[in-house]
Amino acid sequence: MGKRVRMPGNGAPSEGLKRVDPEAIDTIVAAHAGHEGALLPVLREVQEVVGYLPEWALKRVALGLGLSLSRVYGVATFYSLFTTKPKGQYVIRVCESAPCHVQGAQEVINALMRELGVGFGETTPDGRFTLEAVSCLGTCGVAPAVMIGDRVYGNLTPETVLTVLEEYS
């Protein structure tokens, strides 16, 4: 029998994150309640406010929209732009799809990993950056491309990507 390990769970929210008034969640929910298909827009807004989707917030979402918490969680974990775990201040999404790959994405990724000292899915110890591998960002015309926060950078090389990083330090 294989080793039994726990599923990637959601630990207690780490301290030092921004404090959010629980009522802010209810306000978001109230603005969407009654509209069909409200869950995705609500999750987006909650994540904008809280930074991620912790259990306490999704409980309020579930209650407010009359959905089971397991369903809300199931939806939240389906989409790659949602996260149920706290992340770094800036999420670096590196495109790994073929058009970027053939233009040298791997070298850019290696440079980022070396510079930040983290692998995919990990956050730098200072909490600044989380590195993620994603599929095509739709900016392949300037491959290889990387998205930092909501900004996209293209035509990157192992050197230029480090210059871009400096903008965020």
Binding site: S68, L69, S70, R71, T77
Partner: peptide, 20 residues
């Protein structure tokens, strides 16, 4: 009741209670 639901995606998907 809705205690169990599919979570995650692809080969990582699992049928679990919220937050496992």
């Amino acid at each position: 009741v809705g205690a169990l639901f599919p979570a995650y995606r692809g080969h990582e998907s699992a049928v679990v209670p919220a937050y496992e």
